[in-house]
Amino acid sequence: MKISEIVTILDGVLVAGKDQMDREISFGFASDLMSDVLTLETNDLVLLTGLCNIQSIRTAEMSDIPCIIFVRRKKVTPEMIELAEESEITLIECNYSMFKTVVTLAEHGIRPLF
């Protein structure tokens, strides 16, 4: 699924990385613990998290994760946007709960890693 389609189905707000909207994503991973994210070997994934700080962007940067969805109405800061743009990471704000976000993405074919 393209990142642009993810934004639409989640009724999300794209806050960084609009140049990467055509990028295809197959897998999803949901975690607020960045050390768990850092154990993943797949890159082609969207990270769903409620951890809204600079370290979630850094974690995506180190792990080559192209897209982060911030759930539960979290608001991204200008510092986070700046770092995400630098690392070509797409950031999406979403008003849904983590559970609803996961269910919605799964219904549209985004698969779990394990």
């Binding site: 607020d32 613990l33 960045m34 050390s35 768990d36 850092l38 154990t39 998290t49 951890l51 700080n53 370290q55 979630s56 974690t59």
Partner: peptide, 13 residues
């Protein structure tokens, strides 16, 4: 822990 770390996974990772 608020930064998303501190779960005792760093060194094993």
């Amino acid at each position: 822990r608020e930064m998303g770390f501190g779960a005792g996974m760093g060194l094993p990772n």
